[in-house]
Structure formats: structure tokens, C-alpha cells
Computed example of a mutant assay.
Amino acid sequence: MRENVSLRRLSEGAVIAALYTVLTVGLSPISYGLFQCRVAEALTILPAFTPSAIPGLAVGCLISNTIGLAMGLNVAGPLDIVLGTLATLLAALCSYALRNIRFKGVPVLSALPPVLFNAVIIGAELSVAFNHPLWLSMLVEVGAGELAACLVLGVPLATVLVKTGAAERIFGQNTVKRI
């Protein structure tokens, strides 16, 4: 039985990594660059539903940033492979930690760590790489796109997963704290 759970979690993480990569690379004109809005960041709400999303998102980001670098699209260079993956991993851990704080059953607060970590870490990275003011890089170049992806796309995704019962069917989620 334990092997089935481990295999299920590994498969969930792999699917999330693949989805993140396909969305990022498939929408590369808006996924990479100085001003970016990674639609794949909507998936950063998934740690609220499964711990498998934590490594899945980190691996998806690592693969996406590596492909972006190989294609000449990742303007921040090799450092983004490390820092981007770190930002995603830290955000996923915090989103997971906030998973039980819900509003009408939806883990809204879990959408905030990716916005904050990416705005700060990637914003600082872009500020240094392009010699831009730190506030501009954090708030405009990264933060605005991240906010759109996580709140405008991620929260509705979570709402659909909760309200349709898909979260429970897909991830086996059954415990929530309501506020």
C-alpha cells in the first residue's frame, strides 16, 4: 500500500513538472524576458492540495529555465536556473504551509508566497543583470506578472478544484480549515 502512495505522489509531481514546463515553454514570448507573466505560475497554488506539487513545481521551473537558456530566451542567464528554482521551491514550501487557511474552502493565502518570493528574488536578479532600479524590477517587471498569474489564474483554478470536488478526486484532499 505504501508503494502505491509513493508512486502516486511521484506521478503527481511529474505531471505537475511537465505541465509547468509545457505552459512555460509553449508560451515563451511572455514566460521569459525582462517583463514576464508565466501562466504556469498559476500552478503554484497546487501545494495547497498536494505535497507532490512542491518538487513538481521546482523541477518544472528548473527544466523550463534550462530550456529557456538553451533557446536563448532566458535573459537572466544561468543564474536564473539556480535562483528561479530556489524562488519556486521556497514559495511552494510556504504555500504548502498555508494550505489549511482557507476562505470559503479556497486556499487564497497559498497564492501569495510565489508572488512575494519571485518578486524579491527574481526582481533582484533582473535588477542586477540589467542595472534597473530594484523597485522597478520587483514590482513591475516580475511582481505584476506574478500577481496576475497567481491571483487572476491560480485562485480561480483553486476555486474550481474545490467547488467541483476535483481536488478531492485528484489529490485525495479531505481536510480543510475554514475562515
Rank of each mutant, 00 (worst) to 15 (best):
G33M: 10
I63H: 02
T164Q: 02
V39C: 07
G60T: 07
A119H: 02
R38C: 06
A124Q: 07
A87M: 01
L19M: 14
C94G: 04
A42V: 01
T85M: 03
T24G: 06
L116T: 09
A18G: 10
V106F: 07
A124S: 15
L93A: 11
T159F: 13
S110W: 12
T66G: 12
G154K: 09
I45D: 05
N131G: 11
V59R: 03
M138I: 14
H132T: 15
N65E: 15
F35G: 03
L90M: 12
S6N: 14
A40W: 01
S52K: 08
A166R: 04
L10D: 11
P55V: 08
Q173F: 01
R9W: 09
N100H: 15
G33I: 05
I30P: 00
P29K: 09
T66K: 03
L43H: 06
V39F: 06
K177V: 13
A111D: 04
A148W: 11
E12K: 06
M1E: 14
V5N: 10
C37G: 08
K177I: 13
Q36S: 10
P114H: 10
I101E: 04
P29W: 06
F49S: 07
I45K: 03
R99V: 01
T85S: 09
V25I: 15
R38N: 04
T85N: 07
A119L: 08
R9K: 15
T44P: 09
V128Y: 13
A149S: 15
A167M: 09
C61M: 14
T88M: 12
L7C: 04
V59H: 03
I30R: 02
G77N: 06
R8Q: 12
G172Y: 01
S6P: 00
T159A: 15
E168H: 12
L73V: 02
E168M: 05
A58I: 05
V82L: 15
